[in-house]
Design a protein around this nucleic acid. Structure first.
Lengths: 339, 339
DNA sequence: TTGTAAGCGTTATCAA
DNA sequence: TTGATAACGCTTACAA
């Protein structure tokens, strides 16, 4: 086969020799340079193909000061939220002829810093960060990068930081509106103590939807959730309080919370959705597999990845793209029914 | 901040000028070169730090003919199987000081070929491919790459191809052994028509376990599964035949199949595991969320990713690493119970 | 239209 | 122990 050990790939020099022209002519032929004879170009392109020439992005990068590479920094690839986002990133990058270099921090600040350092060494053109709660505006890593950085779902963006995020309040509103339309009036909210910002936004949407429908708020129906971030447990432990408060429906901070609540319902023989309607947030994969399948608010994960890259590219062009706040979409499945 | 537009990063030249030494001295100071005065080295390292020097991997790659980058080619990042594998890849790569460049084919042969071409241009050092049923030994892409290629879970490895895979027969054996230990004797198998190789291996393990226990095989209990690869549907549609055949337990080709079977049980009020025990294969995320949580055979996905990279690195060192066949591990959850 | 030569940031070989 | 110099593969003025 062609796999001889250490067979140096052919360079434009080799082609030049074969074609009896100078390297620069080859270079020009291989690009869309105007100043080259059509015939020469044809001849050289053909020869390059025949010789199995593959241009070296490395050399090109050295002269052009670009690597056509976008670094993605995230906590974990197998996080239920992550996959689609990365796919969106990859798709948008591919369309623009860029590659995607992956770095996971495994929720470690040190590893994140190391990842960013590695990206700097590699001279990547831009960075997309998925909110790791680490790469905050205060992060020393952030300020040192020359390349444009776009953060996805950053809770608390600093001045001048570029952000793509979901509209938490609007998403919550949609969920509650759905429950109201089904005739529910005693609607509970199960929050997340470890995500103050987005929790507040979702709670705001929750209240706004109630207010718009003329339903008076009731503090008993609002549960704070676990401060440590054990969402599933918070969901499970909220069942008692919810029932005690006379709730016929509950909107949960996210799907993990909702699925926790569902499991508590199952254990205590509370029929869903007959006795209690449940709505989550995120639309992680597990939401479709829960029993019953979970009605939830879908974060446009793929689109967030895409937009983040497009924002990086705009910044690379010297533009000043505005931050993006994407709408979340209600996905009705089987955990919600009329009151 | 430091983010001035197009501020060229400092090079060893800049440092050399500041330190009144030659660039090569700086280069030596920054490596672990033996022939340099300790004092000079200290001084230059300090200066480099102060000047915010970040070495250029691009330039280094040009001279060394290495990029310290491993390309990962897979069908989709959000495939339930994928995330952990990528994490394993990333982990092993990181340990060796390598980066991971991600390419998804989205199940398209063309995109896969394009991805490999892009990797070649970038002069990546090695490639890990997750069996996409495309990058087969016959693939023209494969033969043209100079870099070592390791394939994960390749069904039908060609001569000289490097492969990391799971031991299908052993995994199936473990599953069936578990059911036998619970007292089941009428055990069904639900296959996958679109994966002939691994299906055959798992079926072999299934039969071997039965034989070892002295349970006679019964062809009625072996279901072929969907030829098109709709595993969930195949699982659902197998419930009837299984019950007709008097099965008290079923081992499924994979979790998707098992979950399909579970949903059919739910719909037809067949109690799991009371009336029917079910075992899957893979241990995808959804397996833990199914109702009841699915007993299954776990593919060591993280480890497969790790090993694949280690194999690439070994090949890079000029070694001839043997192919790896990793054991799968039984994960007992709630879909299996004594007969 | 084509060729020559310098430069991108680093490493490595050879002298000094 | 340090410094010149060439080399890596390509692009791009500038010259021819």
């Amino acid at each position: 086969l062609t796999n001889e050990p250490d067979a140096m790939p052919v360079s434009i020099y080799d082609i030049a020799k074969q074609a009896n022209v100078s390297p620069s002519t080859v270079s020009r032929a291989l690009q869309d340079h105007p100043r080259i004879a059509a015939e020469t170009k044809r001849r050289i392109v053909a020869l390059a193909g025949a010789m199995g020439y593959v241009p070296s992005a490395v050399a090109r990068s050295l002269t052009s000061n670009q690597t056509w590479t976008i670094g993605v920094v995230l906590a974990s690839v197998s996080d239920p939220f992550t996959g689609r986002v990365v796919e969106g990133v990859e798709q948008a990058a591919l369309e623009a002829g860029f590659g995607v270099l992956l770095s996971t921090s495994q929720y470690s600040r040190e590893r994140e810093a190391a990842a960013v350092e590695a990206l700097r060494r590699r001279r990547i053109d831009g960075i997309v960060v998925m909110s790791s709660h680490l790469f905050a505006r205060s992060s020393p890593a952030a300020s040192q990068v020359a390349a444009p950085v776009v953060v996805i779902n950053e809770q608390d963006p600093g001045e001048g930081q570029h952000v793509v995020s979901v509209d938490d309040a609007q998403g919550a509103w949609t969920a509650v509106e759905h429950l109201l339309a089904l005739g529910h009036r005693r609607i509970g909210y199960v929050g997340a103590g470890d995500r103050p910002k987005s929790n507040r936004s979702r709670l705001r949407g929750f209240h706004a939807a109630l207010a718009a429908a003329g339903v008076p708020p009731d503090a008993v129906l609002v549960l704070p959730g676990d401060a440590q971030g054990d969402h599933a447990r918070a969901g499970a432990e909220s069942l008692g309080p919810l029932l005690a408060a006379g709730a016929t429906a509950a909107f949960c901070y996210n799907d993990a919370t909702a699925i926790g609540l569902l499991s508590a319902c199952y254990a205590r023989r509370v029929a869903v959705p007959a006795d209690l309607s449940v709505v989550g947030f995120d639309d992680i994969d597990a939401a479709a597999y829960s029993v019953p399948p979970l009605t939830t608010v879908r974060q446009p994960r793929f689109e967030m990845g895409r937009r983040a890259v497009q924002m990086v590219l705009a910044l690379l062009r010297g533009e000043q793209p505005p931050n993006e706040r994407l709408a979340a979409e209600l996905v009705v499945r089987d955990t919600t029914a009329p009151h």
